[in-house]
Design a protein around this nucleic acid. Structure first.
Length: 492
RNA sequence: CGGGAUGUAGCGUAGCCCGGUUAUCGCGCCUGGUUUGGGACCAGGAGGUCGCAAGUUCGAAUCUUGCCAUCCCGACCA
């Protein structure tokens, strides 16, 4: 009773907040717009990070680390990028505090300690990284340069929401340099594939791969590729982006190399990133009114074992039986917690681990031991079953796999049910207002039309799907000719 | 940054309109005991700058002003 969760139907936003806070993933901090990621949430991020890191390394990338601060002169070098981020930058102007002469025990910024040049706290690292790359790249032999950074960035957002939009967030940003345009584009789509693979296979969230329109493009990019996911409330969420930056940054920072013919050329660039926002996607894609639902492959905890004691003498018997199960599970690489704490009764523990989304729960009492069985409960469907103790660890391994599949299939079915083709403006507006989800419609290809649609419906073009079929049609707003449908949605 | 709401113990709250002894209740927490198959029970106990600052007053959680923070709705965004 202590941890009531608002239902999705009653208040979707509140439901989301309840899951994050009561599920102990994160909390508001005393810093405006910044959250504290709690151990359970951080363990989830670590699992996501570790898996992605493996995938980056498998595709030839290495990690490095660049400064948090970007001198303003470097930041402004690539104009579009600077302009795009300018209004959400935190800026360091001083380097020292001193005692307030008028207010004992208080500190003030020392006006004497003004920086010669302001330092921008990175909202993204293209500027500092390309400034550095200039010194690293001289010859075609130095290319490609395939670097990733795990870091925090700061974007001073007006309105923040836990994980979805915080002033400071954790992410990774890949920054690569290539000798040819073709190779850079190939890198861009390769990393988009890595993201799609990760989000679908590990997070069990189905995504649509696509290209952004000019309006939605990353500031400073030639093309922005993205993966778009659908949340349970019918709103879309951009889960990852991969940018083909052309030669914009190379030109801004004068990064040239000598090719085989001994001629100077500007290098071609990409950048790509995913952030802790993915955790928000994970929550909103799978969870229910009882709490979080963690996909087994990245769950901070895969299995929890709850003992059902009956009298003091039952404890050592159950503990011993559980110990052998834990050993078997760990041998299979399954993370497991034995919650034999005595300050909470079984019912409380059941509810608590459901709230936290632990995929599989094992309950074991004397009754079970007599019959050589345990009670297994799966979080996704809440089904319980009685299973023999023999071969139990393998059975659980299989069950985890099944849950992973089931969660993905459910999300996929929901997503597919919520992509609707429409052919008229009235239909377009009605679907957005009543059913939401992705709306596949014809668009005349102009930014003006896209702006007008956004103004009138709050829906944006999420992407032009990569595998889009070509078909002639008429723009839903202007009636002008169109050669393909694009995906609209209201988005986070 | 515009519109609306809120701020009292770890959490949720009563009291505020109409100022007046020791700030209400529930959950949680601590101690002891009984319990344990879906959010246990009994007994005792601890815990408060009433968001912050100033003002009015003999007296402020309560009235006034300013500030801060949070939430919701817009604009912005991964």
């Amino acid at each position: 009773m202590s941890k009531e969760i608002t239902t999705r139907e009653a208040d979707y936003s509140q439901w989301y907040n309840d899951l994050v806070i009561k599920g102990e993933l994160a909390d508001h901090s005393s810093v405006r717009g910044c959250m504290v990621i709690k151990p359970y949430g951080y363990a989830l991020w670590e699992n996501m990070r570790d898996q992605l890191d493996k995938m980056f390394k498998a595709t030839g990338h290495v990690n490095a680390y660049f400064p948090l601060f970007v001198p303003k002169s470097l930041f402004e070098a690539e104009e579009k990028n600077a302009e795009g981020f300018a209004k959400e930058c935190a800026v360091v102007t001083h380097y020292r505090l001193k005692n307030d002469p008028n207010n004992k025990g208080k500190l003030i910024v020392d006006p004497e300690a003004k920086l010669e040049e302001e330092l921008v706290i990175r909202p993204t690292s293209e500027a500092i990284i390309w400034n550095t790359y200039k010194g690293w790249i001289q010859s075609y032999r130095d290319l490609p340069l395939l670097i990733n950074q795990w870091a925090n960035v700061v974007r001073w957002e007006m309105r923040t929401r836990l994980f979805l939009r915080t002033a400071e967030f954790l992410w990774q940003e890949g920054h690569t340099a290539h000798a040819t345009k073709e190779e850079a584009i190939e890198e861009t789509t390769k990393m988009l594939d890595v993201y799609a693979e990760f989000v679908e296979h590990y997070m069990a969230v189905p995504v649509i791969k696509g290209v952004k329109t000019a309006n939605e493009r990353f500031a400073g990019a030639e093309d922005t590729y993205c993966i778009e996911a659908l949340m349970q409330d019918g709103k879309a969420l951009q889960a990852g982006t991969s940018h083909f930056l052309g030669q914009n940054f190379a030109k801004a920072f004068d990064v040239q190399f000598l090719n085989k013919e001994n001629k100077k050329e500007f290098v071609w660039a990409t950048s790509w990133g995913v952030s802790t926002r993915l955790i928000g996607a994970l929550i909103m894609a799978h969870s229910d009114d009882q709490g979080l639902i963690m996909p087994p492959r990245i769950a901070p905890l895969q299995v929890v074992i709850v003992p059902i004691y009956k009298g003091e003498e039952s404890k050592p018997i159950i503990d011993e039986k559980v110990a052998s199960l834990i050993k078997d599970l760990k041998a299979l690489g399954i993370s497991v917690k034995y919650d034999n704490s005595e300050n909470a009764r079984p019912g409380w523990k059941f509810a608590e681990y459901e709230l936290k989304g632990v995929p599989v729960r094992v309950a074991m009492g004397l009754r079970d031991i007599e019959n050589n069985v345990v009670e297994l409960a799966r979080r996704d469907t809440k089904e319980k079953s009685t299973v023999s103790f023999e071969g139990l660890a393998l059975h659980i391994l299989q069950l985890l796999e099944e849950i992973q599949q089931q969660i993905f299939n459910k999300a996929l079915a929901f997503r597919n049910e919520n992509i609707r083709e429409v052919n008229s403006w009235d239909e377009f507006v009605e679907i957005l207002d009543t059913k939401s989800g992705f709306v596949s419609a014809h668009w005349d290809g102009t930014s003006e039309t896209e702006d007008k649609i956004k103004e009138q419906t709050k829906a944006t073009i999420r992407c032009i799907p990569l595998d889009n079929k070509q078909e002639n049609g008429k723009c839903i707003l202007t009636g002008n000719p169109s050669t393909q449908r694009v995906l609209f949605a209201r988005a986070y």
